[in-house]
């Protein structure tokens, strides 16, 4: 009887041991099946983009693509900078000081996607409607952004996103 019991215990132990060992291996094998859907090496290689700022003139703005999204880079005039800094931050729908949104007052770098429902605001080219605050205007539902890319009027909940970027040299930035 007791040897039967021993055998049964040994059986159970081995079944559980084998089963758990198999389960661990199975879980490890599962990770690649999930990870393969993550951005692959070629997508990750395009995750950063370098932009040469030297050809951009005062008051001019360019649009470049970064990770499939448009990025607005504007060289602000002194007036535009002053306008952005004179605003009472507490009055803003999404309070944020201009100093927190730029690394260098002259250069404004923003993701050009309206934070409401994703349209691309107009205002990059001279002559385009750029809203009542001198920045950008989203034609889809009437959001107005100022010269710091902050939402001032309209349905958008947040300021235009500032992407991660750094100055590589005085005239070159790396985004992402």
């Amino acid at each position: 009887m007791s040897s039967d019991n021993n055998d049964e215990n040994r059986r159970d132990f081995l079944m559980v041991a084998a089963g758990s060992f198999a389960a661990v291996g199975g879980a490890c094998a599962l990770w690649p099946l999930v990870d393969q859907m993550n951005p692959d090496a070629s997508a990750k290689a395009l995750a950063t983009v370098e932009v040469d700022l030297s050809p951009i003139k005062d008051g001019q703005a360019i649009t470049i693509m970064w990770r499939g999204k448009p990025v607005f880079i504007r060289k602000r005039t002194a007036d535009e900078i002053k306008e952005a800094k004179d605003v009472d931050v507490a009055d803003l729908p999404d309070p944020q000081a201009d100093g927190d949104r730029v690394k260098n007052d002259e250069w404004l770098v923003l993701v050009g996607i309206c934070t409401h429902l994703g349209c691309i605001p107009s205002g990059q080219k001279t002559g385009e409607n750029n809203g009542e605050y001198g920045g950008w205007f989203c034609p889809c539902h009437g959001s107005h952004y100022d010269t710091s890319g902050r939402i001032r009027k309209g349905p958008a909940p947040r300021n235009l996103e500032v992407p991660p970027y750094a100055f590589v040299t005085d005239t070159k930035i790396k985004i992402g």
Partner: peptide, 10 residues
């Protein structure tokens, strides 16, 4: 090995 031992034991 574990599965073989389990099989034998079963």
């Amino acid at each position: 090995l574990l599965l073989y031992l389990a099989k034998r034991s079963v």
